[in-house]
Computed example of a mutant assay.
Amino acid sequence: MRWMFGTILAASTAVTPLMAQDHSKMDHSAHQMPAAEEAEPEVDHDKINHDQMDHGTMDHSSHQPAKPQASTPNTETGRIRAADAIWGAEAMRPSREALYAEHGNMQIFWFQGDRFEYRAREGEDGYLWDVQGYYGGDIHKFWFKSEGEGSFGEPIEDAEVQALYSRAIAPFFDLQAGIRQDLTGPTRTHAAIGVQGLVPYMFEVDAAAFLSNKGDITVRIEAEYDQRITQELILQPRAEVNLSAQDIPELGIGSGIDNLELGLRLRYQIIPEFAPYIGIEQEWKLGGSRDFARLAGEDPSVTNFVVGMRFWF
């Protein structure tokens, strides 16, 4: 036991001087890992005197972002023929011709029944039609018009057809010229010239002058306006005046203002192409025409309560 205790004591005495070394005096620099890269010194921009710097001599080109290169336009063909460079002019010709045919001066047929109505009034009830349409493009059109009226159980009082060449002279306005043929009474053929279109404030106007084969000159002016109350309900005031340069006794027309019509129609647009309506219209014969009407036993003032439809396709 003494031997074992002495051995342990000797060993502890030998280790103690090594563990008791002062590490503060040791040089650890040899054991430090080398830095990967020396850091740049931090620049304090607040202490830089910019007044003493000559910015004009500095090269800023390296700090500017690169500009994208603009594609060179094809000055010979332009965008409308840009596909030719890829597919070839011959391959693109059918598509280009189809584009012109479908979107350039496309020919359109349009027909509208503006007034197609039953008229309840004192005495014999009557009827009236007023239809028109055209075929053509944006500039040139062929217009046709027809209107007439009468009383049930009696011959048609007035009926006419018009065939007109129409040319656009302003946005939404056409100049029209052609012929008008009367189909009732002492039949007459008229040369017609007029204008039709949409004037400011959305009034639709149709004005024409007529020269008959008998030398009579008459003028007709119509105007109407659509006042939308709701998306489907539309109120339409309408006015028409007819004038004559001379008396035409065989037609019951006096010089000056022949007759005046004022109407108000309320229509319900079930679909844009079809709209039934109800309304009222007042007619007056004036001047010499009033005298002719009285001589014929007719009332120069007539009130019509109307029921009809307006349609187009």
Rank of each mutant, 00 (worst) to 15 (best):
M1V: 14
W3K: 11
I8E: 09
I8C: 13
A10L: 15
A10K: 11
S12L: 15
A14W: 11
D22W: 06
S29K: 15
A36C: 08
E37R: 05
P41N: 04
V43C: 04
D44G: 11
D44R: 04
I48V: 12
H55L: 05
M58C: 05
H60W: 06
H63S: 15
Q64L: 11
P68D: 07
A70W: 06
N74A: 06
G78E: 04
D84V: 09
A85F: 00
W87A: 04
A91P: 00
R93K: 08
P94V: 01
L99M: 05
Q107K: 14
W110D: 11
A120V: 10
G126A: 07
Y127M: 03
Y127I: 03
G133T: 02
Y135V: 15
D138Q: 11
E147M: 12
G150L: 01
F152T: 13
E154Q: 15
E157N: 03
D158M: 04
A168C: 01
F172S: 08
F173S: 00
A177P: 03
L198N: 03
Y201P: 02
V205Y: 04
S212F: 00
K214V: 08
T218F: 03
V219E: 02
Q227F: 09
Q231W: 00
L233S: 04
I234N: 01
Q236S: 00
E240T: 08
V241T: 05
I248N: 09
G254W: 01
S255N: 15
N259D: 14
L262K: 02
G263C: 07
R265A: 04
P272F: 02
P272M: 05
G288S: 00
S289W: 08
G297P: 06
M309C: 13
F311G: 10
